[in-house]
Design a protein around this nucleic acid. Structure first.
Lengths: 204, 204
DNA sequence: TAGATTGTTAATCGATTAACAATC
DNA sequence: TAGATTGTTAATCGATTAACAATC
């Protein structure tokens, strides 16, 4: 499944993409690795190594064609392939993510939410919030391959297991707990409080 | 400032802490690195190396005293020192974070929010949401050392600069943009859409 | 004592950086 | 041509893992 792109490189792709898209360049505009490196606070050799992984070659003395670079990064991140995602746990955070428009630039559609609380089982931003009992059916019905877990830590592993059973292949979790899942499932953990605590520790 | 704790190790501390706290152990309960390793999906030598960084020693054939380990991790993460944080940008995400209770376990208090929109300048969860003009005064008044940026990407660098000017030393940003700040300022970037896109790329 | 578990030292692995040749 | 910039190869650095001695 891995195209030989290191994870560290892949994790920088969205940063390159955001930066290059924001430049608002025309069809033939070029950019050098040095300029990108400076803007993103990276080494310029690292930038060239990263960009080589996209398959978009630069020209000595000229640099990279910005449009080509954007297209190559979008290709690597599969931005042109539509992917459906569900949100599990429609509290404050889950609700905010249901309404957030920032997923579309990666070709991701948030199609539905799930919550145990009947009071939340209505609609948010035009998207249905369904009871947890429909999780498996909903995931299949919407053809969702991705899920975002926004439930409390104590419920997260159970939700994770249910998602895996439903056929989800990628899970992003905000719950402050380590989730165990089959190695074929990709899990990424974003712990807001932990990240703020790391900053607050004064160690970095 | 760095106690010699590698960043990779520090980033695992919250995971250890969450796991150990959730065990609900008594005063004398012990645990081995192997058990922790298995629960968190890590190598057991890595766990011992990480725990050594906390200063809490284990005993051969016995393991680690869970309570001591928790105390040592809390010490490293400064959980017993109160720190104030502000949220800049009280949209869906900022609003959710103002209401989120999960920061307290790290000794962090979210004390106020800031937003340009007068409609949002009221109160959220008992916390004042102030106009952006009061950012600098508010940060000083509340003695905030930490800030969370939840504004759109286009406004993020300006907010970052203003926060640094106000005396903030740690910034957590959710805006999909790379922020540049003086090297004395710690900046951590959490891009929700980017993380979901990495999962969706199928490369991992 | 025997055996489980820690902690340390050495080896491996992967990522970043440095040096430099290739080239437009 | 001269010089800027890419891409590659080698060196460095840091993190993880393996081997094993220490010890309770």
């Amino acid at each position: 499944m891995n195209n030989g792109i290191p994870l560290t490189t892949l994790e920088r792709f969205p940063d390159y993409l955001n930066y290059l898209r924001d430049l608002g360049c025309g069809d033939d505009d070029k950019i050098s690795s040095g300029v990108i490196a400076k803007a993103l606070g990276l080494g310029e050799v690292l930038v060239r190594k990263d960009l080589a992984c996209t398959g978009c070659a630069g020209k000595p003395r000229v640099g990279y064609v910005v449009r080509d670079l954007i297209a190559a990064l979008e290709g690597a991140l599969r931005c042109d392939t539509r992917k459906n995602a569900v949100i599990v746990g429609v509290g404050g955070l889950g609700s905010a993510l249901l309404a957030y428009g920032g997923f579309s630039k990666y070709g991701i559609d948030i199609v539905a939410g799930f919550d145990i609380d009947p009071a939340k089982q209505t609609e948010e931003n035009g998207k249905p919030v369904l009871p947890m009992e429909y999780l498996s059916d909903g995931v299949k019905k919407y053809g969702a391959a991705l899920a975002v877990i926004c439930v409390p830590a104590s419920a997260a592993q159970g939700v994770c297991d249910a998602l895996v059973d439903s056929g989800i292949t990628g899970i992003l979790t905000f719950a402050p707990a380590t989730l165990r899942a089959d190695s074929r499932i990709s899990v990424r953990h974003m712990d807001v409080a932990a990240n703020l605590a790391i900053l607050a520790s004064g160690i970095i």
